[in-house]
Computed example of a mutant assay.
Amino acid sequence: MNKNIKRIVIKGFLSLFIILSGLYSTASITAPLSYWDKSNESMLQDVDHSQWQYILTRYLITSKNNTQINLFNYQHVTKADKRILKQYLARLQQIDPLQHSKIQQQAYWINLYNALTVQLILDNYPVKSITKLGKRFFSFGPWDDDAAVINGKTLSLNDIEHEILRPIWQDPRIHYAVNCASYGCPNLSATVFTGNNTEQLLTAGAYAYINHPRGVKIKGGDLEISSIYKWYSEDFGDDDNALIEHLKRYANPRLKQALILFQQSPGDIDFEYDWRLNQPE
């Protein structure tokens, strides 16, 4: 093929990719933030998440003393328990979260996101990585695919995380609560989120991830941290010092001292992420 023609063809494909990416990035956003940012603070009855707790108790292999990664035993989920998970997700989609308090809503959205992710893996199992899934052209994973219908509005996983959870609560600990079914991700909590324990679980998730090597480690004078801190840098202060202050807030004494020394004599900051499926090997 003539070199000039080849360049034109490549540029054409790149332009098409950019256009399609732009369309897909906004296609599933069905309601403005102002719609979801409402609540009923007089609601005392929380959403029932007992079916999700049942699934977690049976199939989540939990770490001890935050030294390991919580793994999910996708391979051994029974047909009966798959039905229970589907029933739970169907019931959540029949609930109007706006009729609940803000803290109950936060727990609702986190549990919904995590349960949808587990359901997605089960529907496509066996799969080596969640990044291998996705129905959209040029997609890297399934996060922009339609995942749930709440109040008649179709939402993707990205909508739940980036159009609801992050902008409404503006809490960086959200990143330690939603799980992407990967080794590099913060642990899937063994305890369901509720209106009573969300604050505690968010903090526990931050401690567990930051004090695990896949979250933060100092190596040869350099700081090696999860790519989460690059992808969502604005949530952690949008500069290196603010990020390190965030890490120090939840670091154990040894790691905190290492972070202080890094601040005093900075090395490089490297980002890593492990997309392998969070299942037992």
Rank of each mutant, 00 (worst) to 15 (best):
I55P: 01
A107V: 05
D81E: 10
L247Q: 03
D274W: 12
I55R: 01
I103V: 15
A147E: 02
G12Y: 02
Y273K: 14
Y35Q: 13
I19T: 15
L157A: 05
K6A: 12
D146K: 15
T57G: 06
Q119D: 08
P32N: 14
A147H: 00
A31K: 11
A258R: 15
D123H: 08
A90F: 07
Q68R: 08
Q94W: 08
I69G: 02
G22K: 13
I55Y: 03
D240Q: 13
K11Q: 13
K86P: 00
T57R: 09
F138Q: 10
Q106K: 14
S50N: 13
F262A: 02
T57A: 10
E234G: 03
P167A: 15
F236P: 01
G184T: 08
R91Y: 10
C180N: 10
F17N: 06
A148T: 07
L259D: 04
N211R: 11
D81I: 07
K6N: 11
Y232D: 01
H175N: 06
L60Q: 11
Q68F: 04
E199V: 09
Q93W: 01
L277I: 06
I168Y: 09
D144N: 15
G220Q: 06
P172I: 03
K64M: 12
L157S: 03
I210E: 04
D96I: 06
M1W: 10
Y207N: 14
I164P: 00
Q51Y: 05
P172N: 12
Y59A: 04
I121H: 03
N211W: 05
I5F: 06
I10Y: 10
A181S: 11
A31Y: 07
K248Y: 04
N241K: 13
S182G: 03
L120W: 02
S233T: 04
Y209C: 02
H246D: 10
V192N: 04
G215F: 01
S265M: 13
L56Y: 04
Y24N: 14
S101L: 14
S21V: 05
T30A: 10
R166K: 14
V47A: 05
D146S: 15
W275G: 02
R254D: 06
Y183F: 08
E245C: 09
R91K: 13
I103R: 15
N252A: 12
H212K: 11
F236Y: 12
H212D: 07
D238N: 10
R83N: 12
T78D: 09
Q279M: 12
S227F: 00
Q170R: 15
I260F: 06
G267M: 10
T67Q: 12
A148D: 04
T198Q: 06
I228G: 02
I103G: 09
D145C: 09
N4V: 05
G152M: 14
V192F: 04
M43Q: 07
L23D: 09
K256L: 08
L44K: 15
R58E: 14
N66C: 05
Q51P: 00
K6T: 10
V149S: 11
N66Y: 07
D46C: 12
C185W: 00
V178L: 11
R58K: 15
L155G: 00
Q99Y: 05
S28D: 07
F193G: 02
I228D: 03
G205V: 00
A242D: 09
N241A: 09
A148W: 00
T203I: 14
I55C: 02
Y207S: 13
R276F: 02
T67W: 08
I210T: 01
N111K: 03
L155C: 02
N40S: 12
